[in-house]
């Protein structure tokens, strides 16, 4: 197996794929559906936002590849307790990390750093970012399907 494949499919990613965290619906929560027409992946992100814009609960459901599922699972763990603005800022740093060229130093994003290997696989960037795009739509409580295309 190549080093790049090992970078992509790290144990933590495989673990979150097998046992996704916060994989459930939240009743009466804001939610949005994300869709990747390239591969047919669909995901729904739910979130509740408390006083001061703090994300008090966040979860997801859907089907997808290992990268999209693990990314969604890790996202829910990373943003719970953060404010919506902080989550948005984290998305921007995450997006930069997974789209940077191979030589760019890897930003430390905690657990999310495990997804840095995606940068070696440009066609998989959309898999890793699907949950985040869907989160943004859920924050806006847009009742529409967001697409990666």
């Amino acid at each position: 197996m190549s080093a790049e494949l090992q970078d992509l499919y790290q144990e933590m990613i495989l673990d979150h794929n097998r046992r996704p965290r916060n994989f459930r619906a939240i009743a009466d929560a804001r939610h949005a559906e994300g869709y990747n027409p390239l591969c047919g992946d669909r995901i729904t992100v739910y979130l509740t936002v408390g006083d001061g814009g703090t994300i008090t609960d966040v979860s997801f459901q859907g089907s997808g590849c290992a990268i999209s599922k693990a990314s969604a699972s890790l996202m829910t763990e990373s943003i719970k307790g953060k404010t919506v603005e902080e989550a948005q800022a984290l998305f921007e740093r995450f997006q930069r990390m997974i789209t940077a060229s191979g030589e760019t130093p890897i930003d430390d994003l905690g657990k999310l750093t495990v997804l840095a290997g995606v940068r070696q696989f440009p066609v998989r960037v959309k898999c890793a970012s699907l949950a985040w795009h869907t989160l943004r739509a859920a924050v806006d409580a847009r009742n529409e399907v967001v697409s990666t295309e």
Binding site: L8, Y9, C39, D41, G64, C65, A66, F121, V123
Partner: peptide, 21 residues
Amino acid sequence: VHPHDVGTILDREGVAIRAGH
């Protein structure tokens, strides 16, 4: 294993297939 993951790993082995709908 999701077909998309199959496709990525096969590609690194030089094998080009399609994964999707």
